[in-house]
Design a protein around this nucleic acid. Structure first.
Lengths: 248, 248
DNA sequence: CGCCTATTTGATAGCCGTCAACCGGAGTGG
DNA sequence: CCACTCCGGTTGACGGCTATCAAATAGGCG
């Protein structure tokens, strides 16, 4: 089974948290879908819309985003390959935030009806979707703590640690370094700083030897020290645990 | 049916978002549970724990909370009567944040196994739980925007608007005013400010005529103006919509 | 009345934002 | 092959919002 399909990536992602059996995997891979490619900054979901399908990020990076009345933008999360981008629309009709492509992206778009029906027929899959949503919620809570209660240095370091750790879970990191395709302005929107201050803070982290940069590639010469500086504790990512009992 | 039970409050809350039929309601009310009373500041869930049951807030207020390495505390949400406090443990084994009583509280505690089994047998109930979780996630995202991209005045005003609106949904507001049982220090932890600055900001909102205060009771002499000052748009609360199709 | 906690107020300091200019690499067109 | 352009990154000067520190006031409760 599991001939090549773009949805293998989704299977792998869900399987990180919940043990799927072969039938579950086959059911996921059999989901109807179209693959679409979008250029950087394209909107994948717009606040207020009711998207007809849910998008899975196959390749590239994306982010969730929301705007304040005065035009200020807050990036709410960074999504990496394998991440479902709007699974919440299994449950809500109306998008409450925007999802935008960070780089060139490839998406698999699955009709909501098909997702609903597979999650009705296979409780473990429904459970895996719910777990995925809860892990995202946990990450958002950590971001709230990050923006609310950490200074610029700690905040940026924490973001770098999180992305590195999540990418490693998908085997997208080379010897403790990775390409972070975000401009400093986007980093600022994610950390609630300004691009200028992000620049200064990155340089200071670099001077301290906590990170090394070459264009947008980031390396971690001293991962332990960076984690310590960030106060980074990966438990909120809920890795490792192959979730609880599946329902039932 | 629906003889008096503390769980009627849960039924009502879930029914705000998803239309439950009589059998769903009966199944919810039939859930085994114990009622427990806790004093202010008691921990209801501790980060790292695996609670054996899920708590429903029957009476009083509670909040979610997380600590940074340096001791800074970020309040992640305010929970009002009717709110499930840790439905996420239907899906995750390990708590990623703390839940604490704000006032004297009365809880109904339902064993996780019973919740799982009812959500297996009644897809609409499972759907309602998931919708509830997603609405909470949406609120957290709005808080991230609030803390990240609004100044102190707007931020506090937004929090007041949100709590007022949610309380109104549960008919807990008297002629546009309510008792907000939070100290200014707790307001500070929710808005990522300091108690001193919360104090000054509240006074300034009061001087502008946007709020009136009498001890911890808050009134809104000019609700529209407050909403405007806060940039408050209640769509993120996902009220009004009786969710989508129930699954299936 | 006395203690404790919460609120209020003032003075001072600092982190980070704002504004503005300059630099530097990548792509484009001549 | 080199100017031109553009976007993003870098740097400096300055200002402001909010934190910090400290002390006084006010309420609640024994």
């Amino acid at each position: 089974m599991s001939n090549y399909s773009p949805l293998n990536l989704l299977v792998r992602k869900l399987n990180n948290h919940v043990a799927l059996d072969d039938e579950d995997k086959a059911a996921l891979i059999a989901l109807p879908h179209v693959v679409r490619e979008l250029s950087p900054a394209s909107y994948i979901v717009r606040e207020g819309e009711a998207p007809p399908g849910c998008a899975i990020l196959l390749d590239g990076f994306a982010y969730r985003q929301k705007l304040a009345a005065d035009g200020g933008r807050q990036i709410l999360s960074v999504q990496i390959p394998g991440d479902p981008l709007d699974l919440e629309h299994l449950f809500l009709d109306c998008a409450d935030h925007n999802v935008q492509a960070l780089t060139q992206v490839r998406l698999a778009i699955i009709p909501r009806a098909a997702l609903r029906s597979v999650s009705m027929q296979r409780p473990t899959i429904a459970h895996a979707f719910a777990v995925n949503n809860q892990v995202e919620a946990s990450i958002t809570r950590e971001w709230l703590l990050n923006v609310g209660r950490r200074d610029a240095r700690t905040r940026l370091a924490h973001l770098l640690c999180e992305v590195a750790t999540r990418l490693q879970g998908q085997d997208l990191v080379n010897d403790y370094g990775y390409e972070l395709p975000m401009t400093q302005e986007q980093l600022a929107d994610a950390t609630a700083l300004t691009n200028v201050h992000v620049n200064r803070t990155l340089k200071s982290l670099e001077n301290e030897g906590l990170i090394r940069r070459d264009r947008r590639a980031i390396r971690f010469p001293n991962w332990q020290a960076l984690k310590a500086a960030a106060g980074f504790d990966p438990r909120y990512l809920h890795l490792g645990q192959q979730a609880a009992a599946a329902p039932g």
